[in-house]
Design a protein around this nucleic acid. Structure first.
Lengths: 247, 247
DNA sequence: GAGTGGTCTAGACCACCCT
DNA sequence: GGGTGGTCTAGACCACTCT
């Protein structure tokens, strides 16, 4: 086998953590101590700890030490809440989640128009370069950024509606679309994950190496796509929940 | 702001790639060249490239160089295929996907019994320590490992059925469950992402730093959980697709 | 054999935290 | 001030690839 030292050290430390030798919230031995214990250089220990941090087992505080991560409560986001009932209740999806998970939500919105790039155009089934309305949103929970989202809608569809404004009114964009004659039939969500760019990681307060969940949601009105929404969120804080009928 | 050098270099290289200065599949300048260009040490360049690799923009071949990643075709896994129609068609989910995505599937299965740990017990709504049947599966596409899955079922539920054997027969576990009187009502899928352990990354052939999509699927028969399935797959190869009704 | 990526080492500096 | 994590440097070695 002969794995590299940093991998072996990571595996050993992982074992010591999961076996309970170091309890939740407890401090790991310092870098210098571990250098001595394993007889390796500083950087090698760092690599091992970086791995455990990416896995979510360890978090670090500069100047204090490495700590066994406390299992943070994970917010479960029920995706099937996009149903008409929830929508007409007058609250957007994020605000509904906030109520369920008990945090104070803030949403910062910027709105502008641009020409659709290739990806957006393909999701919306329009030619590249078509004018689209962009709704860029930063969602905070108790002040911390937790989700980034950018919606794209064909500009002619929402011309003169409240969707063009920062505040879309009760029920949000979807409610306004329905009023404009685009009754939503279904949503398609594409779910994946990726490593965030450093700037993104910093704004979402993601530990280095931690993945981001990437959801691309397309809203359809009578089989015509009317909105595509790109959503990013930290994978250590959120879990998506989908209900699938068996029949 | 004053970001660290490796972040700035990563950002610069990302720009040079996305702007098209280096085309898809093209080789980046060598480490030594970049050390000279940016006036930094080898390790700093390495850190920058590691970041781009985690983002999926760059892949590396030891002894050859760093290359701008070719956008691999992503296999979209339609989750709503868990419906009764698909199930009675006689093929498991993975084999259906294989047919759709055009690869040759292989599944290696190991089966055993053990006592349920805390997590499994809570998903199955049984006491910790209850006997469960474990079906551990390695799924390969054209020989490459692409998915790992481990199913847990209450042992008494499947006592004496074909589910206890490696080959569950046409329609798989779900078909056998229905025959045993447990008509499936719905599935709940919890979707998240995480950084793989090094060993896991190697077996799934995941570039270092690349996330794994983690799906936990619970099958219900008349509101009683009868199976929990933990599925891992590489996020650069798969995307999950969910259809959500709007009414 | 020369060039490449990947890793390890030893030493240094910084920002930060806790007396 | 002494300890801590995080980063950068300069130099080394290895496995690999392409002549």
């Amino acid at each position: 086998m002969q794995t590299r030292p940093w991998i072996q050290i990571a595996e050993d430390l992982r074992l010591r953590i999961t076996s309970g030798e170091y309890a939740e919230g407890e401090r790991l031995p310092s870098g210098s101590t571990l250098m001595g214990e394993y007889g390796v250089a500083r950087q090698t220990i760092q690599n091992a700890v970086d791995q455990l941090r990416a896995e979510g087992l360890v978090s670090s505080i500069a100047g204090r030490g490495w700590f066994v991560s406390k299992r943070r409560p994970i917010t479960r986001l029920a995706r099937n809440r996009l149903s008409a009932d929830e929508r007409t209740a007058g609250r957007g999806a994020f605000l509904t989640d906030a109520a369920a998970a008990d945090f104070t939500p803030t949403v910062t919105v910027r709105v502008w128009k641009e020409e659709a790039g290739e990806e957006v155009a393909s999701y919306l089934d329009v030619p590249s370069g078509t004018q689209v309305l962009v709704r860029d949103r930063v969602m905070r929970a108790d002040g911390d950024v937790v989700q980034l989202a950018a919606s794209y809608l064909p500009a002619d569809l929402v011309q003169g509606t409240q969707v063009e404004h920062v505040d879309t009114g009760p029920g949000g964009t979807y409610a306004r679309l329905e009023e404009a004659g685009f009754a939503l039939s279904h949503f398609t969500e594409f779910v994946s994950a990726r490593s965030p760019r450093p700037a993104e990681a910093e704004s979402l307060r993601i530990p280095h190496g931690h993945p981001v969940i990437q959801v691309t949601r397309v809203a359809f009105a009578a089989d015509r796509p009317v909105e595509v929404n790109f959503i990013s969120m930290a994978s250590d804080r959120f879990q998506l929940v989908y209900q699938i009928d068996a029949r």
